[in-house]
Every structure is written in C-alpha cells, then in structure tokens.
Simulated assay, not measured.
Amino acid sequence: MRRFTLPAVGVLGVAALALTGCQSTAGEPAAADPNAPITIATIPVGEDPTAENPVDVFAELLEEATGRDVEITDVPDYLSVVEAIRADHVDIGIMSGFPSALAVNTGEVDALVAFQGDDAPVSTCVVLDDSPIREVEDLAGKTVAFADQASSSGYFMPVYMLHEAGLERDADYEAIFAGGHEGSFAALAQGQVDAACTAVMLTQLGKPMFPFEDGEWRAVGESPAMPIAGAVLGRQSLDAETRTVIQDGIAEVFSPENAERLGAYGSFAAAPQTVDPKAEEFAGFAEIAAVAGVELKDLK
C-alpha cells in the first residue's frame, strides 16, 4: 500500500460540479492491466494514533481481496474526492449517501456499489447535559454547528430534521460549519454553539470518534433514515475487468467479520450491497437536498 496527499483540487462548491457536469473528456475504457494498482481518494477518517486507521484497514483488506496493490490519495473533503474520480486521477472513492447522490447526478462518475440504508435514524443534535434544550423545537434562536455542507449525517439529514420541526436555517436558528464532526464537537465543548448535529453512529462509537463521556451530553431529536447509506464511486473510464475486481473485492471487504476493524466504515460492513445501482436509486435524496438548498437536477 502506498499513500499520497493531494491538496485541494480547486474550490469545489456544488455550483462548480454543476458547471463541469457536461464537460467529460473521458474516452473508451483502456485495456485491463492486471498488475495495475487500485487507486483510492479518501478524506481523513479516524485520528486516534493508538487505533488502526479505517482507511489503512480498508486498503489492506482490499489488497488481500483483489491481489492488487492499493494506492491511497488523501484529499481534504468529499468534493475533492468527486473531482479526483471525475478527472481520472483515481479509480474509486467511498462516500456517504448525499455526496454520492450529488456525484452520480453530475453524470460523470459511476456508482459501483451502493450500501443500502436501514430504518435507523441517521443523525441527531448533541447538547451538553446541563443545556436547557430538550426538544428540537428548543433550537429556535440558537446557534447550531454542522460538519460541512457535503456531509450526509452532519448537515443534510439534521437540517431536514430541523425543517420537519418547523425550523429553517438562517431564519429560525444560526448555522455554522465547523469543517467536520470533530470541529462541531469542539465548538460545543468550548461553548461556541448551543448544539452540534452529527451522526448517531459517532455517538455510539464513543472516544476517540465522539469526545464526550456519558453524563456530559444528551441527544436531541432523530432524523429520518437514509435509503442509501453510502456508495463506492468509480471513474467512468474503468476497464470492465478492473471494475469487476473492485466490486468483488468490496463485497469481500465489507463483510460482518471485518466490521470492527473497519471502524468508521464498519456500518457499511453490515449493510446489504447493490452492484451497479441505477441513478434513480439516489433520487430519494432530492427532497432532503432541496431543503438544504441543493437541487440534484441542477447537477446534471
């Protein structure tokens, strides 16, 4: 396994993806090279130096499953993952539901595998235990921290949860973007915000992914479930053999026996998988994305 770091590939807002959505220059897939490494773009996952990094575990398991070397390119955010795939810099990336939906709807990346969601709520908003906030409606007039605008569990789903409670961003509460879940937790701990909205899964994982001890925090509200929890996205120029090798490798890697080692990726290990999901399967995100101020149709 080899690892690289790619700086931000440009300021990639949703509008930027929309503008590039019809400018593909990819030709026909090249012939298969059975010795070629599989290249992956990832955002940082797991910061505990005493624990296995989920990205490294994933790469190790994928090497074992496919018999190919794996090269990891670290990028700063989900949108950089999309651009790296779209521009043929890497073969694949793993993303949560909403970034996957936005990426698929550019028409320039393929969903190789989708991890189906379950009926469990995706997100909640966390407050300190001594907070007077008890219900979602109590967030009216408060300051709420979100991870970033491309995060399923840290933005799209909790924003929709607040919307369902009658609270609209910037009108009924102040929203700040902390640059990630860890930033949201830090802002809450330092008293800079009244609540931090995040993934239910992170609150269940505990330290180091979730920094608060029992008795220091409370969960307020639950978002709906997501039809697709995440996806493995691939460049459209992948040759058929490599595409199949990756899909078979993903099925082997994301199996229940690997869930614990995969850490933050562990929830995907228990999820049913769909190979070559159709773009229509991501359409259920449209209403929630519109509430968050993003229209999927604008990205075609």
Rank of each mutant, 00 (worst) to 15 (best):
K300M: 09
D194M: 09
E280Y: 03
D172E: 03
D214C: 04
T25L: 15
M209W: 14
I288A: 09
Q149L: 12
A51E: 15
V90Y: 10
V109P: 12
A114V: 06
L79K: 09
P121H: 01
D276V: 03
V294E: 04
P208E: 14
D69N: 01
A32Q: 06
A270T: 08
A101P: 11
E252R: 15
D74K: 10
V294Q: 01
A240D: 14
E28W: 09
S184R: 05
A165N: 01
I94P: 02
A120T: 07
D130P: 04
S151I: 09
A26L: 15
R261P: 00
R3A: 09
F177S: 05
T50F: 15
Y155F: 14
A264K: 07
L19H: 03
V136T: 14
C22D: 08
E135C: 02
L17C: 08
E52S: 10
T244G: 06
D33W: 03
L162A: 03
A111V: 04
G249I: 10
P37V: 11
H89V: 11
K278I: 06
D194V: 10
A165E: 03
S123E: 07
V109E: 10
T73G: 05
K297V: 11
A175E: 03
E295P: 03
G183H: 07
I246G: 01
Q23K: 11
V104C: 12
V11H: 15
A229S: 08
G230R: 04
E71Y: 13
A51T: 13
E222H: 14
T198R: 00
G221I: 04
A290V: 05
V200I: 10
K142R: 15
A165D: 01
A114C: 05
I43C: 09
A140W: 01
D170M: 04
A189I: 06
D110Y: 11
M161C: 10
T39Q: 07
A65P: 06
R134P: 01
G117D: 08
I92R: 01
E168R: 09
L61A: 06
A15N: 07
A264D: 05
P277W: 07
V127E: 06
T25V: 15
E241C: 13
A219C: 07
L112C: 02
T203I: 05
Q204T: 01
L299N: 07
V127N: 07
F212P: 11
A111C: 08
A8V: 12
E295Q: 11
I228G: 03
L162E: 02
A65M: 08
Y265C: 01
A32F: 13
A175C: 05
E257N: 09
E63L: 06
T244L: 09
L61T: 06
G206H: 00
A103G: 15
S267C: 01
L79N: 12
V126M: 02
S96T: 12
E135F: 06
E64N: 07
P224Q: 05
A18Y: 03
S153N: 10
D170K: 02
A271C: 00
A171Y: 02
D88M: 11
L238A: 07
L188W: 05
R3C: 05
E281D: 13
I228Q: 02
A187M: 13
F210N: 13
L188G: 06
L262N: 00
A36D: 03
V14Y: 06
A229I: 00
Q190F: 14
L62H: 01
K207D: 14
D91S: 08
